[in-house]
Design a binder for these strands. Structure first.
Lengths: 184, 184
DNA sequence: TCCTATAGTTAGATTATCTAATTACATTGA
DNA sequence: TCAATGTAATTAGATAATCTAACTATAGGA
């Protein structure tokens, strides 16, 4: 979670906005010779943009008193609601986090009655996790806003730009998912 | 900071990879009628990609025992090293976080001798913050890897794709920065 | 039946945030 | 000139999301 300072008396003296160029100059000076500077520039802006987008979504979700991680988990449970067995372990595996981290999320969600944990009869060590009716209701309340925020991110692109952008994004995301070994 | 579970005995049973399509179906069902579904799809992938990219960079930086936030701050100090006065307040303002959060970062960085805090003679309430020689050295060690990671993110795009992508990214980032009121 | 593997949780830590309170200095106006 | 008020920085205490390591309980095989 990040960024949304309310007021806190705005400071008089500020740092000048430097823009991108000093970063590029620094890059020229410090990048290894086999690094393509254009690519690095592109990657850098992607990184910044990614950061900013996450912030925007966080701000949006804050209104629903939930975070992106938790919504992510609720969506996962939603989409696997037909599954006979959804365990903390498999969730951890999918989200790329530790089981104990999942436990922490589940405790929070269960406290709010958004999920249900049920002992799994066929194997006493396991627990089946599912989204509750209340959880589904919340997700359905959140999603319209969430999609509209997603859409607003790329609103100002014209159709042609969107088309190329889409192709590129899908490609990049696939390769990054592969590199990380994660993926939906 | 996120994701890089070491081993923790991989689970036998796993959740099936669903891919994007169930998300899109869900979107069709739950998006408000005035939300453009293509845009929302695009935004969603951008969000996922942004998340994944942050993870990648975090993993990279972990080798240097520093996080993105802290590198960000060190870079900021680097680029404003000529400035007479760089205060915690102005840093907070620029990073879009609270002064107390900056204090926490500074304490950590100072403990590692990466920055120096000096009382500001012209106004006893203020503190001038600058990067130390050691800090600069570290930054110079990190940056080659950092730039190469940035570059690797978009490596597989051909020149044409890169060109369009660049144009689009710059545009989007500008608008998101404006919406958030942040920006470098 | 005993040993070991696995699932889940708990305990305790770290990082990055926040708000509210505190401390110290600066400015201003009666 | 000094008391009230404003501002800068820090501290105290909280929450969120993560981690590792240790623990508990169950399962399953030799």
């Amino acid at each position: 979670m990040k960024r949304k300072p309310a007021k806190e008396y705005t400071t008089e003296q500020q740092l000048p906005r430097l823009g991108t160029s000093p970063y590029l100059k620094l890059m020229e000076r410090t990048a290894s010779s086999d690094t393509n500077l254009n690519s690095a520039h592109l990657g850098l802006i992607m990184l910044w943009l990614g950061d900013n987008i996450l912030d925007m979504v966080d701000i949006d979700l804050a209104a629903f008193d939930i975070t992106e991680s938790k919504l992510d988990l609720l969506l996962l449970l939603s989409l696997h609601a037909d599954q006979e067995l959804v365990t903390p372990s498999s969730i951890a595996d999918r989200l790329g986090i530790r089981r104990s981290s999942v436990t922490a999320l589940l405790i929070w969600l269960e406290k709010k009655n958004l999920i249900v944990r049920e002992p799994y009869a066929k194997d006493g060590r396991m627990t089946h996790v599912r989204i509750s009716a209340e959880g589904s209701t919340l997700v359905n309340q959140i999603l319209p806003t969430f999609w509209s925020t997603c859409a607003s991110l790329v609103d100002e692109l014209d159709k042609e730009e969107q088309a190329v952008f889409q192709k590129v994004l899908v490609k990049l995301n696939a390769s990054v998912e592969e590199r990380l070994g994660s993926g939906r």
